[in-house]
Write a protein that binds this DNA or RNA. Structure first.
Lengths: 345, 345
DNA sequence: TTTATTTTCGGAAACGTTTCCGGAATGATC
DNA sequence: GATCATTCCGGAAACGTTTCCGAAAATAAA
């Protein structure tokens, strides 16, 4: 009642009030051609007076563009995803676009659904960050019928994908392993989630080693601190502990370091730990965690720019595939075995 | 080109194909009255065949509802806001609503703008979490003309506000102060941001003390870890250090604890630290941080439910004002002075 | 069978824009 | 002042739905 009472003022009201036709008002709104400066300002003024706001639905119906894009991520609460959501929103806003937020819960069905039902989403394009990455996703993307940007979380992608792809620094795992080997660690362990979720990070582990000692690999349930804690318990229980742990992300790394400390294992003297993501907590943990920045904000910004460009130029049929260089930041949790360790607390 | 080529199939195509009128198709889509089960299934089938998806803009234009709500928060990257965004999206999705995400950057102008231009947002309602809280906001809300839910971050609100309000546990500061006093701390400091940003948290500090020692109050620039670090430096530089610090949130608390450790100040023996938010890092920090949960997810869910109810029942003119009880979780960073402290590392 | 009632359906009018197209007004050129 | 080119403007036709209203069909009652 109270809200409905708010009389909706339409373009027609403005036209009548200003003594012009509705076509002219439309031109005034959209900075269109063929209107004199004089009448434009007059119209703009009466628009102000009447508090007229163009009906977005009607505009969209005519123009077939909604000025909205969708962002589908696994879980807005996790790791660097807030950074990504932020960067996407900023970039979109700069171009007059709104962002609708979708959490797929890293769930294959939900990921497919968002691409399959993209038409129901009421958006001009989609940025999707697939985690589960179901097999039929590429096919669905290819026939989506709407521009799509993919923020790729490590999986190897089909080259024929009809979408722009920006990768979250695909060589981050290699960087970690090289670093650990370079500082003289020989029994390097891996702590992550199921092998197939962020496969490349695990593959980098295998790739860097001549031979994988299965007992040095811990697969937890997720990327959480808890997984790190459990991994530390597990490694501690081994007859011969690792002298380094490559953690699938910072959360796990921090969980590890913390639990190791509780268990009396010295980090980095006895065990070095390196994570991935380079989130702000790495500098807070004690010892501070070495980590690899996978350039989340930059990736997100670029993915957005590419999407918006494709929306503008629907005709192009060359698809970008971009990778950012990951950056290793060495902190306290990984030091060379050659250098004398700091005195233990 | 390639995308435009995707022939848009309309309700008319479906009607022709199924040998019925477009009105009947519409009824089939919307589970409308006055249609036989037989024809409905037939229509649904041809819809499937043709891959018809109703044009949301056209529907919105007719029905005046977009099935979208907006969520305006200061910064999706901060503190408990990802939790809030998650909870809002989940609740909205359960009712068939999409969420468009807006970051106001805790910026007064942006906060006003989002409410003032709510009509341009193409949404049925708005959930706003004001941080800067400009003076004219309540007035703007009152004449918004669209349902609004407010997630309130501590500020005292106008009772006449024409919006449902859910408060992030307004007595959290009191809880902290009571706790610190109860464990025997007498020189309690405050570390936060400018006084007027989350005013109530600071007011709780003043309220709990007979007399405020201005030297024990540190106002930083934001809620970040960095602010905590700087605060620790400041307190450490005092001739007589505080024996407890009430931090405006967990980020600041963790920054404090960490810096104190670096400076050789023992927590909690020499200084107790308590934060607010109860985020997951409190259990990871060493020592673990005592904190107050302000029930972010619950608040967000309720704010969403209230908004959606108001969208359904636009006529009601009674506005809810809900507060959740905050919960104090005592961890290692705050222990009683009476109990013998643990042995120093 | 006829009539009355109910159910099912289709035509057409909105919803509020954008844009095409033709006409009026203005200015320039001779 | 007539002619032509330009600029500016308004009418009206879309855009793809929902929904009102009346007609037709089916069913029930007589």
């Amino acid at each position: 009642m109270i809200f409905l009472a708010a009389k909706k003022v339409t373009i027609e009201d403005v036209a009548r009030h200003a003594g012009v036709g509705i076509a002219t008002v439309s031109r005034a709104i959209n900075n269109g051609e063929g209107i004199s400066a004089k009448t434009r300002t007059r119209i703009l003024q009466t628009i102000e007076e009447l508090g007229f706001v163009p009906n977005t639905s009607a505009q969209s119906l005519k123009v077939r563009l909604t000025n909205q894009i969708a962002l589908a991520v696994p879980d807005i609460r996790n790791a660097i995803i807030p950074d990504i959501a932020w960067a996407v929103e900023q970039a979109a806003k700069a171009h007059g676009y709104r962002v609708v937020q979708i959490n797929t819960a890293g769930n294959a069905r939900a990921e497919l659904e968002v691409v399959r039902d993209i038409k129901k989403l009421h958006v001009d394009g989609l940025i999707v960050m697939p985690l589960a990455y179901p097999k039929t996703l590429p096919e669905l993307i290819n026939k989506a019928g709407l521009p799509i940007s993919v923020i790729n979380y490590g999986k190897q992608l089909d080259a024929s994908l009809k979408a722009d792809v920006v990768c979250l620094s695909i060589l981050e795992g290699k960087l970690v392993m090289e670093h650990l080997q370079q500082i003289g660690r020989t029994r390097i362990a891996y702590a992550g989630t199921q092998k197939d979720v962020i496969e490349d990070r695990y593959l980098a582990y295998e790739l860097a080693l001549d031979r994988v000692d299965a007992s040095l690999v811990y697969f937890g349930e997720d990327f959480s601190l808890q997984t790190g804690v459990r991994a530390a318990d597990y490694f501690h229980s081994l007859a011969r502990m690792p002298d380094a742990v490559y953690a699938v992300n910072d959360m796990v790394a921090i969980g590890l370091v913390n639990r190791f400390k509780e268990l009396g294992v010295r980090v980095p003297e006895e065990v070095a730990v390196v994570g991935i993501d380079n989130n702000q907590w790495t500098t807070i943990s004690s010892p501070q965690i070495s980590s690899v920045s996978i350039m989340g904000s930059e990736v997100a910004r670029l993915a957005t720019e590419l999407l918006l460009r494709r929306i503008r130029e629907q005709s192009r049929d060359d698809y970008e595939k971009v990778e950012f260089e990951p950056r290793l930041i060495v902190r306290e949790s990984s030091v060379s075995l050659k250098r004398s360790p700091m005195s233990g607390s």
